[in-house]
Amino acid sequence: MNERLDGPAPLEPMPTDWQRALAVVAHPDDLEYGCAAAIADWTDGGREVVYLLATRGEAGIDTIDPAACAPLREAEQRASAAVVGVPTVEFLDHRDGVLEYGLDLRRDIAAAIRRHRPELVITMNHRDTWGGAEGGGHWNTPDHKAVGRATLDAAGDAGNRWIFPELLTEQGLEPWDGVRWVAVSGTTTPTHAADAGPGLERSVTSLMEHKAYIAALTDEDPEAYVRAFLTGNTQQAAARFGGRPAVAFEVFPR
């Protein structure tokens, strides 16, 4: 439990004794809505972060055919990642909207973990809802749930040579058992937080790179919409992080 009699427990600082991270999400914009402020600060400190996206987000804009949408959203994601110091963005090319949790997805993510050898793996809310432990809230999307769960499992798969042995025999990817934590963003049961202050402005710029998606999503002024959303999230976490704007994570040690 993460509760005390006088309210929720303070959030612990995120681990800092790591050099490489792999962030695994379903769609372009997932990381920008969740944790880009933390990533900006980490890369400023000399840490390496790689993005892995299961889809290209091609089913995400109703007014744009998927064939045209996929390259547009890929380009926006690469520009967005560059703003926060992430030069490497990979796509697995699973179909947007119909991702399924299973062996294929676990294998693909485990292969990426073996390639990049991260100590920290980041993903998004893998639970049925965005609501709290008591239920309620908004229903999560199938893609988020599938990728989140597969990532949590793949962190272990990557270190076991007898699970997906073809990754070694066919791709030459040696097992990597060096993942020390999986950090889940977008959770309503966080345990840790990273200071969002140093990277907050760049996180706003980073999300605004998703121009086509935001234009289809809201009629509000893009910067006003983005700034209100991101600052609201960081201020909500601040109440449990010494009053500092923060990006919250649920951390599962391994």
Rank of each mutant, 00 (worst) to 15 (best):
P10S: 07
P10F: 02
P10N: 05
P10H: 00
P10V: 02
P10G: 05
L11C: 08
L11H: 10
L11P: 09
E12V: 10
E12R: 13
E12K: 12
P13W: 01
P13F: 03
M14R: 04
M14Q: 05
M14N: 00
M14A: 07
M14F: 07
M14G: 02
P15E: 10
P15H: 10
P15C: 12
T16V: 14
T16P: 04
T16D: 15
T16A: 15
T16W: 05
D17V: 11
D17L: 09
D17T: 13
D17Q: 15
D17I: 10
D17A: 14
D17Y: 12
W18S: 09
W18P: 05
W18H: 11
Q19V: 07
Q19N: 14
Q19I: 04
Q19C: 07
Q19R: 15
R20V: 13
R20A: 10
R20P: 08
R20I: 07
R20H: 13
A21H: 00
A21L: 00
A21R: 02
A21F: 04
L22M: 04
L22F: 02
L22D: 02
L22G: 01
A23D: 04
A23W: 02
A23R: 01
A23Q: 03
V24L: 00
V24Y: 01
V24D: 03
V24I: 10
V24H: 00
V25A: 14
A26M: 14
A26V: 14
A26Y: 14
A26T: 15
A26H: 13
H27L: 07
H27P: 03
H27W: 09
H27N: 06
H27D: 05
H27S: 03
P28N: 08
P28E: 10
P28M: 08
P28K: 09
P28I: 05
D29K: 00
D29Q: 01
D29W: 03
D30L: 11
D30F: 11
D30E: 12
D30S: 13
D30P: 12
D30K: 08
L31D: 13
E32S: 13
E32I: 00
E32T: 03
E32L: 01
E32P: 03
E32Q: 12
E32F: 01
Y33P: 01
Y33I: 14
Y33R: 06
Y33S: 08
G34R: 07
G34I: 10
G34P: 00
G34M: 15
G34V: 05
G34Y: 05
C35S: 12
C35N: 04
C35Y: 08
A36T: 15
A36H: 15
A36R: 13
A36P: 09
A36M: 15
A36W: 12
A36G: 12
A37K: 04
A37M: 06
A37V: 09
A37G: 10
A37Q: 08
A37P: 06
A38S: 11
I39D: 09
I39T: 13
A40G: 10
A40E: 08
A40F: 07
A40D: 13
D41V: 06
D41H: 14
D41E: 15
D41G: 14
W42L: 07
W42R: 04
W42T: 04
W42I: 03
W42F: 07
W42K: 03
W42V: 02
W42D: 01
W42P: 00
T43A: 05
T43C: 09
T43G: 02
T43S: 07
D44Q: 10
D44S: 08
G45Y: 03
G45T: 02
G45E: 10
G45K: 04
G45N: 04
G45R: 13
G45I: 01
